[in-house]
């Protein structure tokens, strides 16, 4: 018992450490990418059109610490980033962290809603297809899933807008309302982006659920359970599904990359003021500190969710939870 508790703690610790190292490497990458990118942030900050004097440029440069050696810039930047200080936006001098902190929960909410939508649709459909392998139902469901993974999110989103907003007028086409101001409106505006984002994910979850169900159904122990006289329903619900849950959770985790990528497009098309919107705007305006802050926040979000998935995964699978002693 004691050994398994320390084992579990050790596992959590190791995963945490890996995540932190990953984050550090990504932070370094983000910093260096900014550094090799063309364009002078100082000129941008002062406004290149206003033709600033060399003295003004120099004083701004030292104010931003850009006259320091790269390595010390890097460590200063890293140290500040650790305290969530990403500097100020070049556009208006507001602290970047304020933007990041206000937009991060919105992206999280969107992604979370999409995962829920996708899981609620994808898992049952995948199970339904696997249980009747080769039937008409299976053929239809797998075809729909193949279509689902082929339609890009922005086309899905556009079609949803065409249908639900323009044709039926049921839901708003885009925008964001704060939940404290009008909760109903908030969720009405969340519906379409979450659906658009969740649809493709639902399709891949359905495909993966189906194939892992089929894989487990073919294992020896399923035959052994039937030989014990267990009802088919119990075999499926008690044993097959719980075994299949492990790869399904993995695929949901692996799909997070696509999901975060999808938020870029979905946020842009639905004017959802999340991290991606922030990032796309900052990239177009070459607002370096804002880009760095947003990138780092997205990476941290992604790594954090991945960590959660991995911990959930090892919770589900005793073979990982308890290494053979």
């Amino acid at each position: 018992m004691n050994a398994s508790v320390t084992g579990a703690l050790l596992l959590v610790g190791r995963k945490l450490l890996t995540a932190l190292i990953q984050l550090l490497v990504i932070a370094t990458l983000i910093f260096s990418v900014m550094y090799i990118m063309p364009g002078d942030p100082v000129l941008l900050l002062l406004g290149a059109d206003s033709n600033p004097s060399p003295e003004a440029v120099a004083s701004m440069r030292s104010q931003l610490g850009l006259d320091q050696p790269v390595v010390s810039q890097y460590f200063v930047w890293l140290w500040r980033a650790l305290r969530l200080d990403f500097g100020v936006s070049l556009a208006n001098g507001y602290p970047v962290s304020r933007y990041v902190l206000s937009n991060l929960p919105r992206t999280l909410e969107l992604a979370f809603a999409a995962i829920i939508v996708a899981t609620l649709i994808g898992v049952p459909l995948g199970i339904a297809a696997a249980l009747k392998r080769g039937s008409l139902r299976d053929t239809i469901l797998t075809s729909v899933a193949t279509i689902g993974i082929s339609v890009p999110v922005y086309i899905m989103g556009t079609m949803l807008v065409l249908f639900f907003s323009l044709k039926l007028g049921w839901l708003p086409a885009s925008g964001y309302t704060d939940i404290s101001r009008n909760a109903l409106e908030h969720f009405r505006k969340l519906a379409l982006p979450a659906l658009a984002l969740g649809f493709g994910l639902a399709a891949s979850i359905a495909r993966m659920t189906r194939s892992s169900m089929l894989e487990i159904l073919g294992r020896d122990f399923v035959r052994a359970l039937r030989a014990k006289g267990m009802s088919e329903r119990r075999v499926i619900w008690q044993h097959v599904l719980r075994n299949a849950a492990i790869p399904i959770v993995t695929i949901i985790g692996l799909q997070l990359g696509n999901l975060m990528g999808g938020t870029v497009l979905v946020e842009a098309m639905f004017n959802w003021p999340g991290l991606s919107t922030l990032l796309v705007g900052a990239v177009s305006a070459r607002n370096y500190p804002l880009v760095q802050g947003a990138m780092l926040a997205i990476a941290a979000l992604f790594i954090g969710i991945n960590l959660l998935v991995e911990l959930l995964y090892s919770l589900l699978d005793p073979r990982i939870r308890r290494k053979r002693t």
Partner: peptide, 9 residues
């Protein structure tokens, strides 16, 4: 590490 970052970003 590369995989832990969405390609589109």
């Amino acid at each position: 590490i590369m995989l832990s970052f969405p390609p589109i970003l």
